[in-house]
Write a protein that binds this DNA or RNA. Structure first.
Length: 726
DNA sequence: GTTCTAGAAC
DNA sequence: GTTCTAGAAC
């Protein structure tokens, strides 16, 4: 996620960042840096002690020198070494200064996972291979001292699973050259009740203020605990001191405060599915925000949009800057409105929903996301308040404390808003009547902000009561929380490996670990491509090309007008996860064969556009490259998974895969959860409620492709064709 | 990967 | 009532 602060002149406020990675071998430090740098919006340098001496291990002072050089050249720096002990990182923290923020990113992943990765690793830069890894990792982790703000960090982010890691990757890769991130500690969870008790005692006795950063209100623990929330009064006392981390973090957790600055996160109303003109909408947003902030003090407003390069966000940012709106009180965030706290460390107690008139879940975009994240609680609570909503109005719904959105993100209220509809395919379309449209959109924001103001007023009155309620239910809830399974994104391979390593005998078991790496079990239905690759002669009728290295066939269920598979014939190369440096030339062969076929099709139909790539986690065994035309005009494209497997980061472009294998020996594999993301047009990125609507949209959408697809030859077009930037 | 189908959404 | 999704079975 990206937090943009406007009103800051680029040169004056530009700060470089030193990110000190903290994590055991196998925790994913190098991958983290690579993932950020691949899509970064600011210059980064990765300083890795394992490779700093011409590709070999070097010294700490070499790292320090390189880091200082990079900072002098205006680059931000990743310190990629374990940094598990305070002393090991202290010299790097000193790189900070008025123009340099020092952050820590703690990859505090389960020891078993780090060990299993280290054990399986071969040819890693640190040369920590085989069974010895278990012993080393185990020993290092015993000395682990989690970083604290008191060491000199302005921001510390903790990751306890790969989902956390991905969120933090997103945060840093989204960071533009002049963006900054809020200070504080983020992402610690799974608090132990005993520890929490200690913190509560601490909270009560603290009184000496000690500021650590401008954004201390976000310095809170991410999940609820068996303790009740501190009452407003209690938290007032610790408002500034709660981030005095050297004490607070003892035992590994942070206090949670109930009295954050009341913050409303809201999506841009009507500009997505309802197709309201962005220029006009941004004027209204800025005007309404300014009016509200002039009247109501001590609140924050955050405009949120899921997509990078969102036009509405940049319009609003620029206009807000022109109007000198305080960037501490109003700013924009790129990210998921249902994950602002866990994803961006941004505490928003109220979020707005771009609702449908029936106040029902479904549709696409924000409405679906919020109802889904909040669970059935929101639907029930909404029903209690209203059965429908008219354009221009808002409905305030208190979120039950049982809702995951409340528990996880700290959202206490959802405000449903309905804006004007300018989309002829939606009900109550205003045609092109922008006089009416602007009036209704204005009313919608007025209603939204009034609703927010009423929550703020009532919260001040009732916070003690609500705190008490919370406490009385909390035992049960806390238990439920702890029983909630952590999100696991490990491959089956990892899980198997981990299951076989018991904590007590890690060192011993680790020695034999290299043998454990079993393969994914493929269902019989998933073997078809494998059989073809192994015995192409038996399938001659289905194949359009056979060579020693690859075979080419039309996908049996093409998801577009042209959809080919280029199959690797190497036995054992089941999927992208198996691909290593030694397969580079095979990958290049597959790519060039794919390109050859794409060009052949283009010579017949120059209007086609092709993309070549792999699924992060394929359903069918045997590495296969998809060569697919971007019309997606096919009766076989039937569901969300089909669409998202070709139109989210789950689809890895062949060019990128080759580059990654070349540079790092492995390809980034993206999460299967991508497959259940909302449906967005691959050209204009608009969201659609279901597959039929999406298909109807893409059959007409002539928008230019997003810039990421236009770079690096990710799209293959006819020789004289031109695809413009979006 | 697809097919089938219950039941949710409309 | 029809449309659409999503999970189970293969």
């Amino acid at each position: 996620m990206e937090v943009d602060c406007q009103n800051k002149s680029r040169d004056e406020n530009r700060k470089d960042i030193v990110v000190i990675l903290v994590g055991a071998p196998g925790s994913g430090k190098s991958t983290f840096c690579e993932d950020v740098m691949r899509t970064a919006h600011r210059p980064w340098v990765r300083i890795c002690q394992d490779t700093i001496a011409n590709g070999k291990a070097g010294t700490k002072s070499q790292c320090l020198k390189s880091a200082a050089d990079a900072l002098r050249n205006g680059k931000s720096v990743f310190i990629d070494r374990c940094n598990l002990e305070r002393e090991q990182r202290s010299d790097f923290v000193k790189l900070g200064g008025p123009q340099v923020d020092v952050h820590a990113v703690v990859l505090d992943l389960p020891a078993k996972l780090c060990i299993s990765r280290s054990v399986k690793r071969s040819g890693h830069e640190g040369n920590l291979q085989g069974g010895k890894a278990a012993a080393v990792v185990n020993r290092m982790l015993q000395k682990k001292e989690l970083p604290k703000l008191g060491e000199g960090f302005s921001r510390i982010t903790f990751c306890q699973n790969e989902g956390d890691v991905q969120n933090v990757v997103n945060t840093y890769s989204a960071l533009g050259p002049s963006d900054t991130l809020p200070s504080g500690c983020f992402g610690q969870k799974n608090p132990d009740a005993k520890i929490q008790l200690g913190i509560m005692k601490f909270l009560k006795k603290v009184d000496a203020p000690d500021t650590v950063g401008p954004d201390v209100q976000t310095c809170v623990s991410k999940q609820d605990t068996s303790e009740k929330l501190p009452s407003q009064k209690e938290t007032e006392n610790v408002k500034l001191s709660s981030c005095k981390a050297s004490e607070v973090t003892e035992g590994g957790d942070f206090p949670r405060k109930a009295s954050d600055v009341p913050t409303l996160a809201f999506p841009s109303i009507s500009t997505s599915d309802f197709q309201f003109n962005h220029e006009k909408a941004s004027d209204i947003i800025v005007e309404k925000v300014k009016g509200f902030l002039d009247e109501v003090g001590n609140v924050r407003l955050v405009l949120v949009d899921l997509s990078h390069g969102s036009k509405i966000l940049s319009l609003v940012r620029n206009k807000a800057a022109q109007k000198n709106i305080d960037s501490n009180k109003f700013f924009t965030v790129v990210g998921d409105i249902t994950r602002l706290y866990t994803g961006a460390g941004l505490r928003c107690n109220v979020i707005a929903n771009a609702a449908n008139w029936r106040l029902k879940p479904g549709g696409g975009g924000v409405n679906a996301a919020i109802f889904s994240a909040a669970g059935p609680d929101l639907e029930i609570a909404t029903k209690d308040r209203a059965g429908s909503i008219s354009p221009g109005s808002a409905v305030v719904v208190p979120l039950p404390s049982t809702s995951p959105l409340y528990k996880r993100e700290g959202v206490t209220h959802v405000i449903h808003v309905l804006g004007p509809n300018m989309n002829p395919q939606r009900p109550n379309c205003l045609g092109n009547d922008y006089i009416k449209g602007c009036k209704i959109l204005s009313e919608a924001y007025s209603s939204l902000f009034e609703g927010f103001a009423s929550i703020v007023r009532n919260q001040t009155k009732t916070v003690v009561k609500r705190g008490g309620n919370y406490g009385s239910e909390s035992n049960k809830k806390c238990k439920g929380l702890r029983e909630e399974p952590l999100v696991h994104m490990m491959s089956e391979l990892d899980e198997k490996a981990i299951l076989s390593v018991s904590t007590d005998t890690m060192e011993k078991e680790g020695l034999e670990h290299d043998k454990v790496g079993g393969n994914k079990v493929w269902g019989t239905w998933a073997q078809a491509l494998y059989h073809i690759a192994m015995h192409p002669e038996k399938h001659k009728n289905d194949l359009i090309e056979i060579s020693d290295d690859v075979v080419v066939l039309n996908d049996l269920y093409p998801k577009a007008q042209k959809h080919l598979l280029v199959l690797a014939r190497l036995d054992g190369l089941d999927r992208l996860a198996d691909v290593q440096k030694e397969h580079l030339s095979l990958l290049r062969t597959m790519h060039s064969v794919g390109i050859k076929w794409a060009k052949k099709f283009l010579s017949d139909d120059a209007s086609l556009i092709f993309r070549l790539g792999y699924h992060s986690a394929p359903s069918m065994r045997q590495l296969h490259l998809h060569v697919i035309s971007q019309d997606f005009n096919s009766i076989h494209l039937k569901n969300k998974k089909h669409w998202n497997s070709f139109n989210t980061a789950f689809f890895r472009d062949s060019v990128d895969v080759i580059e990654e294998i070349d540079e790092h020996g492995k390809a980034t594999l993206n999460d299967e959860r991508m497959l259940s993301m909302e449906l967005r047009c691959h050209r204009c990125r608009s969201a659609h409620p279901n597959i039929p609507r999406l298909k109807s949209h893409i059959s007409n959408c002539q928008a230019n492709f997003p810039i990421t697809l236009l770079q690096n030859d990710r799209l293959v077009i006819a020789p004289n064709g031109a695809v413009n930037e979006a």
